[in-house]
């Protein structure tokens, strides 16, 4: 039927390397999520409570991250900053690009989460003698976390998928590694088919773990 001979042996031979690269993908995605969450919370709070230049910086960050392609953002950190003599390593390009993007998307999620917790709760906590910090970390954040938990999981999946763009800026995570091997052996289809399977497994793994975690965390 096919006028093509599939050669899976080179793929199987480099499978350990691919799996290792898959781990790198997970790492860069997780790291960018952590950075994205921290910056996202800060951006959300700034947008809710402040006026003036800070507000405009936060707003343009969010709108830029949400309204331009992720690939454009990566290129910007990769080539655009080069115009100012700032040359990042491929790892840093991907990390910076993903963090920028995640922070922008998460800021909106967090804003929704913060707005869903009524103001009266914060005031009640303060009037019970809690400091602002205590009230936030013990009353507001746990409730916000429950609301943004599923968006967070989705964003982590997006981060994993987006990290595949690293292949276009020379970062050798799963996609970059695949590209590297594929161009050495010309077994492009076979390599990318296996990589697609690995991505699928990673995504399903993340979703499965998050579901288990949700059952454990949100029992009440």
């Amino acid at each position: 039927m096919f006028d093509y001979n599939f050669h899976w042996r080179p793929v199987m031979k480099s499978l350990p390397d691919l799996l290792e690269a898959g781990l790198l993908t997970l790492q860069v995605a997780a790291l960018s999520m952590v950075i994205g969450i921290v910056i996202g919370i800060v951006l959300a709070l700034i947008r809710m409570h402040m006026r003036g230049p800070l507000y405009w910086i936060a707003t343009s960050w969010v709108e830029l991250a949400r309204n331009t392609p992720a690939l454009f953002q990566l290129f910007f950190f990769g080539f655009g900053l080069g115009a100012f003599g700032l040359h990042l390593s491929p790892f840093l390009i991907v990390l910076a690009g993903l963090s920028f993007n995640c922070a922008g998307y998460l800021a909106e999620n967090f804003r929704g989460g913060f707005q869903a917790v009524p103001d009266t709760q914060l005031r009640a906590a303060r009037s019970l003698g809690m400091t602002a910090w205590q009230a936030y970390t013990r009353i507001v954040i746990p409730q916000v976390f429950r609301i943004v938990y599923h968006p967070l999981t989705n964003q982590l999946v997006w981060a994993v998928l987006m990290s595949s763009l690293g292949m276009l800026v020379g970062f050798r995570e799963l996609s970059g590694e695949t590209q590297f091997f594929a161009s050495r052996t010309f077994r492009i289809f076979e390599y990318f088919a296996v990589t697609a399977v690995i991505y699928y497994v990673i995504v399903k793994f993340i979703l499965g773990v998050s579901r288990l975690l949700a059952m454990r965390l949100f029992r009440y």
């Binding site: 096919f2 006028d3 093509y4 999946v157 998928l161 987006m162 595949s164 763009l165 292949m167 276009l168 996609s175 695949t178 492009i188 289809f189 990318f192 088919a193 990589t195 697609a196 991505y199 699928y200 995504v203 399903k204």
Partner: peptide
């Protein structure tokens, strides 16, 4: 679900190289 769980870039490369295989 597969199309949502695999990066678009991989799908593109995969299909572009798969199309000639099936003629």
């Amino acid at each position: 679900d597969v199309f949502r769980s695999v990066p678009l870039i991989i799908q593109l490369v995969l299909f572009y190289n798969f199309a000639p295989i099936v003629g």
